[in-house]
Structure formats: C-alpha cells, structure tokens
Design a binder for these strands. Structure first.
Length: 176
DNA sequence: CCAGACTTACACG
DNA sequence: CGTGTAAGTCTGG
C-alpha cells in the first residue's frame, strides 16, 4: 500500500515489486510539482484486514479512504463500472466499453483494467473476455497463466460458476 | 508522434 | 476449434 500525505491510499498491489510499479505509474500520471509525497504503509492493520477479506472473496470497501484524483476521465468511468459488478458475477471488456461509449473502447478498457491502481478494492478481476475466458491478470513478474490462476481463484471464492474452464453464463452481469 | 495494451470481430483451414 | 489479423481508442514516453 502507498498513501498520500493526507492519508489516502493511492495504490496497492500483491507484492513489493508490483507495488513499486503501480506507485510509479500513478506518480507519473500526476504533473511534476503536484505530486504528493507518498510513502509505503505496510503496517496499516485495518487496511490489511480489509484487503485480506477481499482476497478471500468477502467484504466490500468504500472509496472514502482512497484518492483517485489523478485518474483520467475514461479510466474513472471504467473503474466506477467495475465497482458496480456484484460479487459473484463478471462482465466483459466489451460490455464495459459499450456502456461507457462504444464497443471500440474495448481495448482501452483492457488497458485501464490492467493499470488498476487498487486491485481487489476496484475489482478488476471481475472482467473477462467476450468468450467468457479468464485470460489475464496483471501480476508483473509472473507468467500470464499464473495471474489467470489467481484471477480464477478469486472469482471462485466470490461464487462465480465455471463451466469447462469458462465462466458460466449465469454468472455474467451486464452493466445497465 | 508513436508503440503498446488484461480486446474484439471476422476470415480461413 | 485454433490461428492470424485488421480495426480502433486511450495513454505514456
């Protein structure tokens, strides 16, 4: 976890390595001079507990203690959409794209999802391809297949049903 | 300005 | 079904 001087969290990740990358990405997106002094805060028990519960497929965390003022408009829309996906359901990159403008944004949505600064809190794992397959989960330093395993595990813990390696249609959720 | 990205759709064998 | 590829958008460098 990394937070600004105002105490709000701007990024978190599964490992030190991926966190460094996430923080760097966030910082770079903020104009020089406006960049907050931010520091790693691994010892925050309360936040740790929240994250742990999310990892176990439980709980839900409000956005109050997070700062996303640096996020671009389109990505903000994407992230808002992600937060509306109910636990135990998933949606597709294309569906989100369509909802926030055009199916053509699909790829941009993929990028946005992949650069999610707050994994778990913003449930980017609840997005799959149009063919309902769990292909990728950004875990730098790991093989894509390993990330995908984690993603599937998370989804199963949340109650998403799988059929032949694909998400079953009953677990699909459509943005409205 | 250009390359890359957690896509999609469609063609072909 | 697997492979290949063009299309097309946002972002970061």
């Amino acid at each position: 976890m990394a937070r600004k001087e105002n105490g709000k969290l701007i990024a978190c990740a599964f490992s030190e390595e991926t966190q460094a990358k996430a923080v760097k990405g966030v910082m770079n997106s903020i104009p020089k001079g406006l960049r907050p002094s931010c520091q790693a805060a691994p010892a925050d028990q309360a936040k740790f507990k929240e994250l742990y519960e999310l990892l176990m497929g439980l709980g839900r965390v409000g956005m109050n203690s997070f700062d996303m003022s640096h996020v671009s408009p389109l990505r903000m829309k994407v992230y808002s959409m992600l937060r509306r996906i109910p636990r135990g359901r998933v949606t597709t990159y294309g569906a989100i794209a369509k909802k926030i403008g055009s199916r053509r944004f699909a790829r941009a949505v993929g990028t946005a999802v992949g650069r999610n600064p707050l994994p778990l809190i913003i449930p980017c794992h609840r997005v799959v391809t149009a063919s309902l397959e769990v292909v990728n989960y950004g875990m730098p330093g790991r093989k894509p297949s390993e990330g995908a395993v984690v993603k599937r595990t998370l989804l199963k813990r949340e109650g998403v049903k799988f059929l032949e390696g694909k998400v079953s249609r009953q677990s699909l959720w459509s943005p409205y």
